[in-house]
Structures are given as C-alpha cells and as structure tokens.
Simulated assay, not measured.
Amino acid sequence: MTDVCDVKKRIESATNALTTGRPALIVSGADDQEVADVLIPAALASPRWTAWAVRYTSGLLCAAMRSTRADELELPAMVRGNGSSTTTPAFGVGVDAVAGVGTGISATDRSRTARVLASPQTRPVDLTRPGHVLPLRTASRGVLERRNSAEAAVDLCEIAGLSPVALTATLLGDDGTLLQGTELAAFAQVHGVPVVQVQDVVHYRLHHGDGHVGRVRQTATRIVDVPDRCLRVVDFYDELTGAHHTAFLGSTTPAAASTTPAAAPTVYIVFECSHRDPLAPDCGCRREFETRRIRIAAEGGIIVYLRSNPRPANQYTVQGHELAQGSISSILTHLGFTTVIVSGWPGDQHPTSARALDLTPTVRNPAYKTAASL
C-alpha cells in the first residue's frame, strides 16, 4: 500500500521547488532498473538551471507537453505512426524560438525556447524547425493513461500550478551511466533536489485531481426523508471517470470529526447494483444500504455510494479499485473530513474490515502560472 504521508511530503517538496524555477528529479522503475529524469518547469526555465541540467545529463533536452498542445503548435511526431504508442511518448520535430535566440544551442537559448513553448500565447509561427529542443508528445490524461516519466513531469508542473510543459533530460553520472540507488540519493542530497517517484504522481492524480480541478466536483445537496431520520445527501461528479457518486451523511459533522481521533466517523462504502438507486424499493443493494443507513442514523457516519465508471477501464493505467479509492478520499476531503474509519475500502483482502484513513490536505496551488517574462 502507498505510504500516503511520504507521498504528500515528496509531492509538496517537488512542487515547492518547481514554483521557484528549481529542478526536481522524477524516478521511474525500481532497484537496478531506476531511471531518473531532471525536470525543470519550462515556464520558469532559466539559463542557470538549464546549464545545470546539461552538465548532469546527456544534454539532450526535451520539452514534454500534451500531444494536443503539440498539435496546436504544429509539432508532429518525428516518425509517422509513432504518436500512439501505449508505452512511450513520441519525439516531435525539434524547435527553437524565433525571437531572442542565437544559434539555439546555448543554455540561454534553450531556456528561452522552453519558456516560449510554455506560453499559452505561443503560436506555430513563433517557432523555427528544426531546432535544439525536442518536444515530447505525452498522453492527454497524463500518468493515468501512460505511466511514464514524461507524463509525470507534465502532470507535476500542472499540479504545481504551472504551465503543463516540462524541460526534461535523463540524469547521468560522470562516467555516462545512469545514476541509481545510493548514488542517485547522494546526488539529490548534494544538489538539494527533491525526488519524486512516478507512482507518487499517479497517487496524487487519483486522490487530488490535476492541479486545475479536484478529483470530484459537488453538483447538488438535498435532504432525503427515510424511516427514522432525514439524511443529508450530497451528489458528486467524478472529473476523471465521468461517474456520479453520492454521499449520505448521518449526524456526524466535519467539525466533530476533527476534534479528536476518537471522534473519527465511520464511512461505509456501497457499490451500485444494476438498478442504480439504493432508495428504490426493488433495488438489489437496498438491503446493504438499509443496514448502513440504520447504523448512521443511530451512531452517525457516512455512506459513500459509488456508481459505475461509464468510460472504458482500458483508458487508465490503474485498476478499478484504485480509481474507487481516489473517488472516496476526494469526496470525504471535499466534505471537510480529515480522519475517518472506512469499512469496505476497495481492494482490501478482507472487505468487511475497517481501516483508518488520513485525509489531511496536501498541495494546493489554485493560481495557474504561465511562462515567465519572455
């Protein structure tokens, strides 16, 4: 299971660095298969950090961006038919900025080109082809569509509130080999560069959204009269999957739940059946729902009723229970809870067991920062 606290610390450390224009490292693979990529936010690329990236990498600097943005800038894949790979991004035609560069190869020139690529005002005529910065065409849904360091770099820029374009290059040692394990950790410590795993970005996207919008959006609140009690009902739209979920709240309030750990309410997870309405008399999941409803009426608590994902499961790099976990935590965070006890957590080997869930908010950068002064 992912260590949520460690993930929060790593993401927060990386986004704090990126918002000041400093680099971070994104690591993919495990053990002796590790590959670390330097990430510099293209919107804030400076000659200093671009030169640093050239010094400690292969020097092949790429500008990772969504394939949709690459299309807008008329940056097709170098190799025809390579734009739909399920495992790797496609290299685009190399570019330089039209204005403000010399030969295009210097750190000053490449940082300028990176900032031009990151600016939403940039148009195809603002770029010359070929050039010295290679676009990387990444998946439109980021790491949730293709689990790759380039997708993670773009997602992380967006999470930090920056333009979703990342200047990247693979980190190498002085002997030209990949830095891994203890050598990689030592490099990060010496240079004061935060390290993030691709899986960390996947976890953030699942539970917190993409930096622009949260994972879920509240759509309606109402009171439903049921035997013995009125329940507050809150409907949500899942921005990632397109599903509609509902939370039923008993007497528990977020304020009461946050006072002491002992006050943490119990959350019961119920998945929809074919009828898709737990309050309907002939609903197949009514018995389970009624059992939970009676309990929250007497003891307080929440029922989270999850509906099916209307989009094909093969669109995502994660399993169905992981998508459900992200929906649940995002719904509860939206409702104001910080600590809860969950019964029926998706993916548990023992679905009737309960687990504590820490919902402490993590990175929040509502402002969307565009390219630095060009």
Rank of each mutant, 00 (worst) to 15 (best):
G284D: 12
S58N: 04
D235M: 01
S46H: 05
V233L: 03
P361E: 01
L117T: 04
L171M: 02
L323R: 07
D282N: 13
T219R: 12
A160F: 07
A90M: 08
A139C: 03
Y268P: 00
W49M: 09
L231K: 09
V198L: 08
G142L: 09
L178A: 12
A264I: 04
G83D: 14
M78P: 07
T338E: 14
G173V: 00
R10C: 08
L134N: 08
L144V: 03
L184E: 10
Q349I: 10
A262N: 08
L184G: 10
R147K: 14
L374V: 13
L332C: 07
A356N: 12
S106L: 08
G83N: 11
A64M: 01
T352S: 00
V7F: 07
M1Y: 13
Q218T: 13
A14Q: 04
S308T: 15
V54R: 14
Q197R: 13
A160E: 07
K8A: 13
P261W: 05
E158I: 00
V125Y: 12
P76V: 08
T88S: 14
V196D: 03
R55V: 02
D277L: 07
T252L: 01
I269R: 03
R69Y: 03
G336C: 01
R55H: 05
G211Y: 00
N309Y: 01
G300K: 02
I11P: 13
A43D: 12
D210R: 07
D126E: 06
A372Q: 08
